Amino acid sequence: MTGRSRWWLLSAIAALVMTAATVYGVGEWRRYQSLQAAPSSVDVATGPSLSGPRVIFRNTAVGDDYGRVAAVPLDDPGAPRAVSDLECDRVDATPERTVCLRTVRGVVTTFEATVYGADGTQESSWPLPGIPSRTRLSESSRLVATTAFVTGHSYVAVGFSTETVVTDTVAGTSANIQEFEFTVDGRRVTSPDRNMWGVTFAADDNTFFATAASGGQTWLVEGDLAARTLVAIKQGAECPSLSPDGSRLAYKKDLDPGADARWAIAVLDLATGVEVVLPGEQSIDDQAEWLDDGTVLYGLPRIDAVGDNDIWAVAADGSSDPVVFIERAMSPAVVREG
């Protein structure tokens, strides 16, 4: 291929990317406006922002507050929700910090991650390479993990690619975990189709768990930030979430690995290796959150309402069926203190 041909090819690719971004941005903006136009379908609290033990989430009830970060008391999830001015696609929080992944809608849509302090003051912000997917704060609030789609809109899309970065908010450094050494059964995986996403942190601010994929297979991996390594510990587990006591991982498990994926939440005991698949009828595409050591939360889209979701709760030992925990909400983050 000549230099001129390469130039024209790159120009054509750039034009296609720009067109796709424009179409996506316009479509998302119109859908977003329509969801904000209707009256709110939930009770909203008035007064100061909620503090104390609480569940923070993205409000998906139609109306002016659609897409904003909201909160309910930890011991009363059905109470009227306190809604902030912060708009996020994905959110996580600790008593000290909140991380927000958002879509900046416009003629050309962009994406960003922003970290806020306990008083709501913005501490830092940086661009994301694509559509926000997952985010987690470490227990200390020092580390922030972000996953964004570089190509494709979901994990079920053919040829999707993600970028997962761990940012140290104290040191001001970041690491793309796709660049870490990845091994399966002692064998290094170096193929260019490697993909990593869905981080959850251990309490030591060094160990983490995530998903790694290559060659059509996925693994639950244990990561070491200092050593820059990823070691596969189980096949077929995605989007892990570590329990508050650090003893178990909840993750997505495909119960039907054929053409039509059927995702359920499973819980792995790290000491015994025993896995329990939790009950539920609907396929789940979410990174779970632990309400406490005995209960797992996750989001599910409403079948009858595009863009609307509910947060469900299920016993971590599989002893009971899931129930709706918070209506018209997604991306739960449990703040147990503050």
Rank of each mutant, 00 (worst) to 15 (best):
234 K>F: 07
264 A>Q: 12
233 I>G: 00
228 R>H: 11
242 L>Y: 10
215 G>W: 13
243 S>V: 05
255 L>V: 06
248 R>Y: 05
243 S>N: 02
237 A>C: 07
251 Y>M: 14
236 G>Y: 05
228 R>F: 01
227 A>F: 05
260 D>A: 14
264 A>N: 12
265 I>H: 05
231 V>I: 07
257 P>V: 03
239 C>D: 14
247 S>H: 14
241 S>I: 08
218 T>M: 07
242 L>S: 09
227 A>W: 09
218 T>D: 06
259 A>M: 09
243 S>I: 04
263 W>L: 07
218 T>Q: 09
240 P>L: 15
224 D>Q: 06
218 T>H: 04
264 A>Y: 02
241 S>E: 14
241 S>K: 01
238 E>P: 00
229 T>H: 06
263 W>D: 13
221 V>I: 12
261 A>H: 09
238 E>F: 00
218 T>E: 12
249 L>C: 12
235 Q>I: 03
259 A>H: 04
264 A>V: 05
226 A>C: 01
231 V>A: 05
252 K>G: 08
228 R>Y: 04
238 E>C: 02
235 Q>M: 13
236 G>L: 04
227 A>M: 02
223 G>M: 06
249 L>I: 14
250 A>D: 00
250 A>S: 08
230 L>P: 02
254 D>P: 00
220 L>V: 09
250 A>H: 04
241 S>R: 01
216 G>E: 01
217 Q>Y: 10
262 R>V: 07
238 E>N: 04
249 L>S: 03
245 D>V: 11
240 P>G: 11
233 I>S: 00
249 L>P: 00
247 S>N: 07
241 S>T: 13
238 E>R: 02
243 S>K: 05
238 E>Q: 11
235 Q>A: 11
220 L>I: 08
239 C>V: 12
243 S>M: 07
259 A>I: 11
221 V>T: 10
253 K>M: 14
227 A>D: 03
259 A>T: 08
248 R>W: 06
228 R>Q: 14
221 V>K: 06
242 L>E: 12
247 S>A: 15
234 K>E: 15
259 A>K: 03
253 K>F: 05
251 Y>C: 04
262 R>F: 10
238 E>Y: 01
237 A>M: 08
223 G>Y: 06
226 A>D: 12
229 T>G: 12
258 G>W: 07
261 A>S: 11
231 V>W: 00
226 A>F: 08
222 E>Q: 13
238 E>L: 12
260 D>Q: 11
246 G>M: 07
235 Q>S: 01
228 R>L: 06
247 S>G: 07
250 A>W: 09
262 R>W: 05
247 S>P: 09
259 A>R: 08
258 G>V: 11
227 A>G: 02
249 L>V: 06
225 L>V: 09
265 I>L: 07
240 P>V: 11
219 W>T: 12
250 A>L: 09
239 C>L: 15
248 R>Q: 14
253 K>W: 07
219 W>F: 15
225 L>D: 13
248 R>F: 12
225 L>K: 09
235 Q>H: 04
240 P>R: 05
244 P>D: 15
231 V>H: 01
233 I>M: 03
231 V>F: 00
